[in-house]
């Protein structure tokens, strides 16, 4: 075998190896795409069914086909003309907005204090707040109900809102973000003559705007879609939030899925708008919380 033959063989082997590596890469790529596709389908299907059902007549609601036989907008007209829907929408909006504002203020205030002030028991307070994350909502519902009953908060906005006015997750998120604000800024502001609240408000808070935006979205979405607690604490239909109100379309014998899905479709619009505007902040917020945790 000549030297040229050896070279040719070596080159062929290298080329073959390169092709195999490419094949391996493209196989990996295909698997990744398939997994993402499956995930995407799993996410999109409920929304597609919601939209599809909202365009169906009652008789074809239980037809699994995604395309309605006779698509129409009568359900939308019915839901929007029903005065109750508008009332529930406003209830949800008021509760979600007030809860969000409350969370932004109190979560950031507590997070800032736990991050930037040194005091005896700081760590214990933080752990105590954090540990409440481990208690499932279902366990808290009964104490909340007893409390609401004792204070006369049943069937009121306050009754619906009070458990979520401040969240341990929000405190944790804000505390982690405030750790990225160097102490020099705080001290510079102190020397510049600001009092502690002004430092929090004028210096620290503007520096964690991405976290505030992310928290705003989390809290807004959470409250907009909240179902269990508003269902328990309200009996007056006029005070229902959207999810509770929508579930009341129909009774045990006859659930009007097409109307529920229509209401659900309309109710996703505000969350969709909020999400589209702030999604880049959500990603940054979650990433930061993960990194700094």
């Amino acid at each position: 075998m000549t030297a040229t033959d050896t070279q040719i063989r070596a080159t062929s082997a290298a080329l073959l190896e390169g092709t195999r590596a490419k094949q391996r890469r493209s196989l990996g790529q295909t698997i990744r795409w398939l997994l993402l596709f499956a995930g995407g389908i799993a996410m999109i299907m409920p929304i597609a069914y919601m939209l599809s059902t909202s365009l169906k007549w009652p008789y074809e609601v239980y037809n699994v086909g995604l395309i309605p036989e006779e698509p129409h907008l009568e359900n939308y007209a019915y839901v929007l003309e029903d005065g109750r829907f508008f009332g529930w929408f406003i209830n949800s909006l008021i509760i979600a907005v007030l809860t969000t504002v409350s969370n932004l203020f109190f979560d950031s205030l507590v997070g800032y204090t736990l991050c930037k002030f040194t005091f005896r028991g700081r760590q214990i307070v933080f752990i105590a707040i954090l540990s409440t994350l481990m208690i499932p909502t279902e366990m808290l519902v009964i104490p909340w109900y007893i409390m609401s009953q004792s204070f006369g908060w049943l069937d009121s906005y306050w009754g619906i809102m009070f458990p979520g006015l401040m969240t341990a997750f929000g405190v944790f998120l804000m505390r982690q973000f405030f750790q990225t604000v160097p102490d020099d800024f705080i001290e510079a502001a102190r020397i510049d003559g600001l009092n502690e609240f002004q430092i929090y408000w004028s210096v620290a808070l503007p520096m964690v705007k991405p976290a505030l935006a992310a928290l705003a979205i989390f809290v807004f979405l959470g409250n907009w879609t909240a179902f269990l607690w508003p269902l328990i604490v309200t009996t007056d239909a006029a005070l229902y939030t959207l999810p509770v109100g929508l579930s009341s379309f129909g009774d045990e014998a006859d659930v009007q899925w097409e109307l529920i899905m229509t209401g659900a479709a309309i109710s996703t619009l505000p969350t969709l708008i909020v999400f589209l505007i702030f999604q880049r902040f959500i990603i940054q917020g979650v990433a930061m919380a993960g990194l700094k945790g």
């Binding site: 020099d184 510079a188 210096v203």
Partner: peptide, 20 residues
């Protein structure tokens, strides 16, 4: 006295100028 009452001003190592 509080820092603001001391008639001093300070320049920090990492500048501490407010980014916003």
């Amino acid at each position: 006295l509080e820092p603001k009452e001391r008639d001093i001003a300070m320049v920090f190592q990492n500048y501490a100028i407010y980014p916003h």
